[in-house]
Design a protein around this nucleic acid. Sequence first.
DNA 1: TTGTAGGCGTTATCAG
DNA 2: CTGATAACGCCTACAA
Lengths: 340, 340
Amino acid sequence: MKKDANRITIHDIASELGLHASTISRALSDNPAVSKKTRELIKAKARELNYRPNQMAAALRRGRSDMLGVIVPAIDRNFFASVIRGIEEEANVAGLHVMVCQSYDDSERERVLVEGLQAMRVDGIIISTAKDGLNDADFFKSISGSGTPVQFFDNMPAGLDAAAVVINDRRGAYAATKHLIDQGRKRIAHMRGPQHLDIYRERFAGYQDALKEAGLECSDALTVDINSHFDNGRKAFAHLWSRDLKPDAVFSASDYSAAGAMQSAQEHGLSIPADVAFVGFANEPFTELMTPSLSSVDQQPLSMGRKAARRIMRRIKNEAVEKERVILEPSVIVRGSSAS
Amino acid sequence: MKKDANRITIHDIASELGLHASTISRALSDNPAVSKKTRELIKAKARELNYRPNQMAAALRRGRSDMLGVIVPAIDRNFFASVIRGIEEEANVAGLHVMVCQSYDDSERERVLVEGLQAMRVDGIIISTAKDGLNDADFFKSISGSGTPVQFFDNMPAGLDAAAVVINDRRGAYAATKHLIDQGRKRIAHMRGPQHLDIYRERFAGYQDALKEAGLECSDALTVDINSHFDNGRKAFAHLWSRDLKPDAVFSASDYSAAGAMQSAQEHGLSIPADVAFVGFANEPFTELMTPSLSSVDQQPLSMGRKAARRIMRRIKNEAVEKERVILEPSVIVRGSSAS
DNA sequence: TTGTAGGCGTTATCAG
DNA sequence: CTGATAACGCCTACAA
């Protein structure tokens, strides 16, 4: 019975060839000090024995793991999946592995994940923090002070001066609202995300910017709170529509809520976009599949992931602490829900 | 300047307390041999120094990493995201970490990922294989013969006798088709996935089963090949509709293709489900958001993930090689696209 | 060009 | 109950 490949070490190869383990190590890492002949001999034997280098041992010895940890609230949101794809693209060419973890928007779990990744000695952590409002800037300060570089993207704890790649949420919201104004809408409602989070406060502010600029009223009666879920958006629209001041357009800080709202509007017998126009946020793929298709704000997730990866990889190499924020510009994708 | 938490070891704690490293190790792993007093002292000091155990060193020493590797084609398909959630639920209670990787349906990349996970000495690999038809049963045989337990789910290389959790694709397809027949449909088309993959052959077979049972013809003119993408589904329907024999129902092996097909049907001025009814496969969340909402076959992804995790964890503990297949029963979710 | 030795941070086994 | 020691598999000065 052949020995398990997992258990085969450079020593096994060494003894089979009458060489020393250090030579094997050198040959396998293409150290020019070893002669071409023996190197090829060694590589052939390694293949024959189905040898797999033990990454943990190597990592322990070298002091780095060549692993990047990524923490996102949930991988089934296309935004996060795309960011991860961007990260992987960059990391893979640099020979780094990517460990993806989900916080499920639970800050407690998030802490456990961060500590777990640190325990694995990942070379760096890329994270969009949980949106339950319970995460703690101090915790992240202590982490980045602890030797593991942390790179934020999208969402991050308020009041933290750290490396981040974000989009200009305010401008995105402004542009979305402006687009609705340009379509002649006068009573534009906003379904806004949790206001304890920067990104949603910014989106609310951008919405207000556009209204003010156009001299439109910015009434509480046109604002409703949502939590990014479909059913919630449905209820939010019903709520909005039950008030005296009926909107002729809705800008939602979330595609999911916008989708729910659209469905509710249709159930109210409203025609879209004639009676009410809709714009969402995140440009999830399903927005294209709806009838009518849902306009949305694109957040450049791929580019966000690539930039985040590049930046943290630079920091890993330089040991430098670069704290700037990279700010990407979003764009409004106009579809059937807001244009005839 | 405080030492980086990442660099703090049990030796640092030991010297600060005038104890030996082995005592620290025991205390931190709650070994009852150490006195309550010193244990608490040690734990306090560990917290104070912000100590993080080095998982790699521990893994190296113990011979296991407490990590599970998961490889899926893409994480942004809700089916896979849900399976992963199921896996995480089970793994986390057992104290295992989950490393998620994406093959992007590229068998070459998949091999690299498998080897990478082996190099990390993950305790086991859970995988749904790439659908490019280039994966190699022999490769996986050699892997599972190499000491790393491999647990398949959903898709796997043909002709491989290995542990797997799958759904009864044939029954799912049968039930979906039967549902359409029960709605009085006579010319039911099938948009079928790549026939080099077991799962899609099974779905095709289930479709044929239902037709035969009902005495309906199973014509080539009602079959069209798809690749699970939206645009492709669109073209597929246009193609189908350009033929002489027009279908009055479509069963698609993929939700994405079904969605594209529905859009194409609407562009042809057809009314759904009156003129043509649709049923997809996978029960992606967007199916509910469409107008009309798309009927689909649910694959029990959560349960699939949980079962896969439980089974591989059993194998890891027992060192036993259990090769049975677990087969889950799918169910048809009837929505507006196929019922009035 | 190859061999030797030491150590990365833990844990398991022996002693004491 | 605690201390000493060796080993997990690899890498890297340094020596030969």
